[in-house]
Amino acid sequence: MGEVAKLIDVTKCTACRGCQVACKQWHDLPTETTPDKTKFAGSYQSHPDLGPNTYTIIEFIENTNENGTQWHFKKTGCMHCTDAACILVCEKKALSKLENGIVYRDMAKCVGCGYCAQNCPFLVPKVNPKTEKATKCTLCENRVEAGLKPACVSTCITGALDFGPREKMLEIAKNRVATLQQQGMTKAQVYGEKELGGTHVIYVLGDAPEVYGLPADPQVPLSATLWQKYGKPLGAAAFCASLGTTLFAFFLNRKKDLAPKLHHHEGGKSHGV
C-alpha cells in the first residue's frame, strides 16, 4: 500500500465516543484517573485534552447564538503530517515516518524530553510522567500492517471515520464537501490535503477550521526549523571551533616557558606574554 490516511468527517459524527474506547482497548490503555479524582468538567467532554493514556478524544464544541445552537463534535488526535515537526525535533529518532505516511513512534528510543509535545502544531503528543515516554496516536500501524483498519475506524457506527489509500480518502472527502456545500454548508472544506505537506489524517469540516479549534494555516514552528536547521549546526560549529583553537593553543604553548617572573623595576609597562 502507498500512502494511507484516516478520514474524519465531523459532519457525520454523533459523538458516541466508541472510537475513544476502542482506542483504549486496542492499546490497552488505562483511564487517566478515576471518577472520584476527576473534576467536573461542566460539559460532556470527557477529557480537557489528549493525555498520555488517551490518544484520541471527541471535543464537544458548543455555540449558541442568534442562529440557534451548534454542537460540534471533533475527533482529535495525531494528524500524521508529512512535514512532521515532531520528527524534526526528536533528537532520539524515536519518531519517524513510515513509507505509508504514518508517523511511527518507537517507545524504546523515546526519552520523554517532550520536544515533540511542544513543537507539534496541534499539541498532540503527551509525555507520561510515570513512564517518561511521549505518546500519541499510532494510527494503529500494527493493525494497518496486518491489513486491518485502525481500531477507531473499525468501531465507528455512522461512517464518520474511514481509512484507506490517501488518494481515495481525499476523493471521498472532496465529494462529501461538494455535497455539503450543495446542502447549504458553504464553508465546508477538506482539511489536511496540503497542510503540513499533506497530513495522513484528513478532516471533512462543515465550517472554518477555527470553529473546530484547528489552526487555519498550521506550520512547523519557525523556532523548530531555525533550531534544527541552523541553531544546532551553528552551536556545534562554535563548540568545535573553540575546541580546535584551544587544542591548537595547547600544543603550541606546551613547551613554552611563559610563566610570569618577578620583575624588579618600578612602574611602567610590563612586557611579556
Binding site: 483504549k24 482497548q25 483511564t31 478515576t34 471518577p35 470527557s46
Partner: peptide, 12 residues
Amino acid sequence: TPWLAELMPHMF
C-alpha cells in the same frame, strides 16, 4: 467499567 465511567464520571 473504567473506560465508560471515565467518559461520564459525574451525575449532573
